[in-house]
């Protein structure tokens, strides 16, 4: 049985924003899979749950007049996985969606919720008063850290759990956010909080703010994209290592690229070093190998997760080379 909370399901976005803003211990319920898990595990208590599941306007997927795509924040992961237009124009996103959790959770989980997930670190989810939960230290740093970060760690060493966030970053997605001050647009690259900025916060949303939609620009001519994820078990799990790639190709040469890693860092990790290694180069084994090396140039493994470094190198190289075979 979950600890008690009050519950409201507003029928307008404005009311949802007000309800969320009104109480400090109010939490947003979209699909509910992450929230209920956190409440079940006692990660934090919720005084009030504000459900946005009645906001039908947040469920649409619509092609924009500029050729881009607007995805309502309540769109389920399953819809992203199966939508034919997304599969054709943004393969990285449908491939990432297909790798999220289990079929049951994909039916329930939403894209907005997937971006706002709490970390899966076993100390954070367990009965440890860790830094991220308001305590004094990160227990992973000197503890069981085989699934923790190798890049971007500082004070807290989680990995970001989302598969869709790296895919959307590779596509230069932006977010539409509604809040007490009205609407604003936010590049996805500015959503997630690195631990050296604040180890107790995951996202830069203000009190009462709700992500309403995710916008994708029109795919560039020559765009090739993919997502691949390595898990500790075959059926379903969070990423041990993953890579979202979006390459704009011109006659076999890389004109532009995004290389974004999952399972690597406390935030979805864009590797600009890997991108620079590919820039303007013909896509071949040498360029792919160099990009893979560069992606790991700053890696600082912990005691039990050094295996991730060669794993990422192999993964990135293999995935890049698949575009040549195409």
């Amino acid at each position: 049985m979950l600890p008690g909370f009050s519950y409201t399901r507003p029928e307008t976005l404005k009311k949802a924003v007000e309800e969320l803003k009104a109480a400090e211990d109010a939490y947003l319920h979209a699909g509910g899979t992450d929230l209920l898990g956190c409440l079940h595990d006692g990660v934090f208590p919720a005084g009030k749950v504000v459900s946005i599941s009645a906001l039908k306007g947040l469920q649409e997927v619509r092609k924009l007049s500029d050729g881009g795509l607007l995805i309502g924040a309540l769109t389920t992961i399953r819809t992203l996985e199966t939508d034919a237009d997304i599969g054709a124009r943004y393969p990285v996103l449908s491939q990432a969606a297909a790798e999220v959790a289990s079929p049951q959770l994909r039916e329930q989980g939403t894209l907005g919720g997937n971006l706002c997930q709490k970390p899966r670190c076993w100390y954070y989810r367990g009965e440890f008063d860790c830094l991220r939960k308001g305590g004094k230290e990160c227990f992973a740093f000197n503890g069981q850290n085989q699934f923790h970060c190798i890049l971007g760690g500082s004070a807290c060493y989680i990995v970001h759990p989302s598969d869709t966030a790296p895919a959307l970053l590779a596509l230069d997605a932006s977010l539409q956010v509604s809040g007490p001050q009205g609407e604003r647009s936010l590049p996805l690259s500015e959503l997630h909080v690195a631990p050296n900025d604040d180890p107790r916060r995951e996202i830069y949303l203000e009190a009462g703010e709700i992500i309403t939609a995710i916008k994708l620009p029109k795919p560039a001519a020559g765009l090739k994209s993919s997502y691949r994820k390595i898990r500790a078990r075959q059926s379903w799990d969070f990423a041990v290592a993953g890579v979202a790639l979006a390459l704009v190709m011109d006659n076999g040469t890389v004109k532009d690229s995004r290389v974004v890693l999952s399972g690597a860092a406390p935030i979805p990790w864009r590797s600009q070093k890997a991108e620079q290694a590919l820039q303007g180069k013909p896509l071949n084994a040498e360029a792919a190998g160099l990009a893979a090396m560069e992606a790991m140039a700053d890696a600082r493994p912990l005691e039990h997760n050094a295996y991730k470094v060669p794993m990422f190198k192999g993964l990135i190289k293999e995935e890049l080379l698949k575009f040549i075979a195409d």
């Binding site: 519950y7 399901r9 319920h29 509910g32 899979t33 209920l36 898990g37 749950v49 459900s51 599941s53 399953r78 079929p103 049951q104 959770l105 039916e107 329930q108």
Partner: peptide, 18 residues
């Protein structure tokens, strides 16, 4: 696992009010 609107879902992760 139950079906909600014909789709498989976990009943443990679904609030009855939802």
């Amino acid at each position: 696992t139950v079906l909600i609107d014909g789709r498989p879902r976990y009943a443990c992760m679904t609030l009855a009010v939802e």
